[in-house]
């Protein structure tokens, strides 16, 4: 095994081009587990820990360009306003120690359906900035997850940053685990209200082979909100509407039975989370409207 320690981003891209099978390591919270437990022996480890720009973020006006290695603890602390859904998701990641090391780039690179950041990214709307010596491309998050623990990156590409749309309305994130802290998601749900476009976006984790959006639920809700003139109203949403949204969200799942939970439970729980988080965001919108 070789340990590559590029001092800068260009050097890292060059190394990845030269060794496309090299495994990038930043926070180490996925890669080192696999090495410690003898599940993985890459020929090259590519340490991204010395590349400072990966741990910085940048305000692009309507979005935040979040460096791939910005630790979750800093997202929680500094980006709660612009990226509330991701900040909430960050708070549910493993433990304080892990949140001090792990970042969104790792979640995306591993592309596990259980990664906590995915539902928040899907709900907010994001593009993954993938870069190689050949150049940079922006991959919409909806196109990023291609299979179980597979993503749209080319072998020579590294994740430089994620461009996440700033919140224009309330966002929520909720995850079910069988412990009250330090737990991998049995399933998770993210929701973002986008009053500017009068749309709602969602994200589901751990309830399908990849992170997904509950598209049918979104379409139903967007239409119903429009039809009922709800965006203009301060009233709570009708129960029947919320219930139908929850049913459709549960229906979007394609889960499996595994040691962490049953498929049936995951489907059920996503329905509950969809209903609750829609309620929370909608009432937060009422409050913010009222305050304004």
């Amino acid at each position: 095994m070789d340990f590559l320690r590029p001092a800068g981003w260009e050097e890292a891209l060059a190394a990845k081009a030269e060794h496309p099978a090299a495994v990038p390591i930043a926070g180490g919270t996925d890669v080192m587990v696999e090495i410690n437990f003898d599940h993985r022996r890459p020929d090259h480890l590519l340490d991204l820990g010395r590349i400072e720009e990966l741990t910085a973020w940048e305000d692009l006006g309507d979005s935040v360009r979040l460096g791939a290695s910005v630790p979750y603890s800093r997202i929680m602390k500094h980006l709660r306003g612009d990226l509330p859904g991701l900040a909430l998701a960050s708070h549910t990641v493993a433990s304080p120690q892990i949140r001090n090391r792990g970042g969104v780039g790792g979640n995306l690179g591993t592309a596990s359906p259980a990664g906590d950041a995915h539902p928040a990214l899907l709900a907010a709307g994001a593009e993954i900035e993938a870069e190689s010596v050949r150049g940079t491309r922006l991959i919409p998050v909806d196109d990023f997850y291609t299979g179980v623990k597979r993503n749209a990156l080319a072998p020579d590409e590294l994740i430089r940053a994620v461009r996440i749309r700033k919140a224009d309305g309330p966002q929520q994130f909720s995850k079910v685990g069988t412990r009250n802290a330090m737990v991998i998601a049995v399933c998770a749900f993210g929701i973002a209200l986008h009053p500017e476009t009068r749309t709602v976006r969602t994200g589901i984790g751990s309830a399908a082979p990849t992170p997904i959006r509950a598209k049918a639920a979104e379409e139903f809700l967007n239409a119903a909100l429009e039809e009922g003139n709800h965006w203009e109203s301060e009233a709570p949403l009708p129960d029947s509407l919320v219930k139908q949204f929850a049913t459709l969200a549960a229906g979007a799942c394609n889960p499996i039975d595994d040691v962490r939970g049953t498929a049936a439970y995951r489907r059920h729980a996503i329905g509950v989370l969809a209903r609750r988080t829609l309620g929370w965001t909608w009432s937060a919108r009422e409050r913010s409207t009222a305050c304004a």
Partner: peptide
């Protein structure tokens, strides 16, 4: 949420 079932995972604010 730290005092609720689900804890930091933010699953309930008292519902259910």
């Amino acid at each position: 949420v730290r005092a609720l079932p689900g804890g930091l995972s933010n699953t309930t604010h008292g519902e259910g």
